[in-house]
């Protein structure tokens, strides 16, 4: 295969981005944001509750945490499902001990399979964020628009019915999207999305269904990324999250409110030997003044009220 004739043509070589979803801006030159009660940092805890179907494939790409062994891959199926039975309850305990709210990203299939888990999360006062249908349903541009819309609509319907909440946040499985995903999300009543990893503060994306707020979910201090992709210990993960908090907390003094997100997976951090490190991280953060524990929904409301 030779290079295409247009390999030296650059149709999007222009000011700003090479697509039309959002304009460029410099994090450090934006209007400072003020959080309620003058808090410096919003603490946004985002545990994910995930179901990996036994028949999932690695097409069109390998889902992070996805099944990899010949069928039936009981090893990975059950290890991930551990999070839904045991791990998430450890995380809920840590949050309850500290009276912290969280935004729990839940696959729609969980609402069908384990409705009592959704009820427990809701009863504990947490926000439900839609996390796609299940980990075998990646969003990608090979999906027909109707088929993708059906996944979005069904996911939201399942979670809205099971939780009684409006469910306005979205996290795609594997943070993967098609070209149409932001449009479909906004059209289905989603206000904010956590897939993009390009900022430390929220920014608006334009979609066919109106504005969609991109919320900054920290990709590189995600528990699965640090401990399973990078093979760092849980001690190192805790140190990194604390270091991240310290820098953002310092920046808030000169640049306005910041957000510290703590992405977790019930099947990763919910393991007995790791859970203590979540306590350690949260206690470090809560030892500081002017920390605002918030859900994604709270943060979106506060952010948009000053836009």
């Amino acid at each position: 295969m030779a290079l295409g004739e247009d390999y030296l043509n650059y149709p999007w070589r222009r000011h700003g981005m090479d697509h039309d979803r959002y304009p460029w801006s410099n994090l450090f030159e934006r209007k400072p944001v003020t959080w309620p009660n003058g808090a410096r940092v919003a603490l946004w805890i985002t545990p994910a509750v995930q179901w990996f179907p036994l028949d999932m494939t690695s097409k069109p790409f390998a889902m992070p945490g996805g099944l990899t062994m010949p069928f039936p891959d009981l090893r990975h199926y059950t290890n991930r499902d551990y999070g839904n039975r045991v791990g998430i309850y450890r995380i809920l305990d840590v949050l309850a001990e500290r009276k912290l709210p969280a935004s729990v990203a839940v696959n729609g299939a969980i609402a069908e399979r384990y409705p009592s888990l959704v009820r427990d999360i809701v009863a504990a006062g947490h926000e439900i964020v839609a996390h796609g249908l299940d980990m075998g349903h990646a969003h990608h541009s090979g999906l027909a628009p109707d088929a993708e819309n059906e996944i979005v609509a069904r996911t939201l319907r399942l979670l809205r019915e099971a939780s009684g909440q409006e469910v306005t946040g979205w996290l795609s499985p594997g943070r993967a999207q098609s070209h149409a995903t932001p449009d479909l999300l906004a059209e289905n009543g989603v206000a904010y999305c956590c897939d993009w990893a390009n900022d430390d503060m929220p920014f608006e994306m334009s979609t066919r269904g109106g504005p969609l707020l991109a919320m900054p979910l920290a990709y590189e201090t995600d528990d699965r990324v640090v401990m399973l992709d990078f093979h760092h210990t849980e001690d190192s993960w805790a140190e990194q999250v604390k270091d991240r908090f310290d820098v953002l907390y310092r920046e808030a003094e000169s640049h306005g409110g910041r957000i510290v997100s703590i992405p977790l997976h019930a099947w990763v951090t919910g393991v007995p030997y790791r859970i203590g490190k979540l306590r350690e991280v949260l206690d470090h953060i809560l030892a500081h003044e002017d920390v605002w524990p918030a859900t994604g929904r709270d943060i979106v409301a506060a952010f948009r009220s000053q836009a």
Partner: peptide
Amino acid sequence: RPLPDVLAYS
């Protein structure tokens, strides 16, 4: 990943 690989791009 297939285009758009929004996670890697972002």
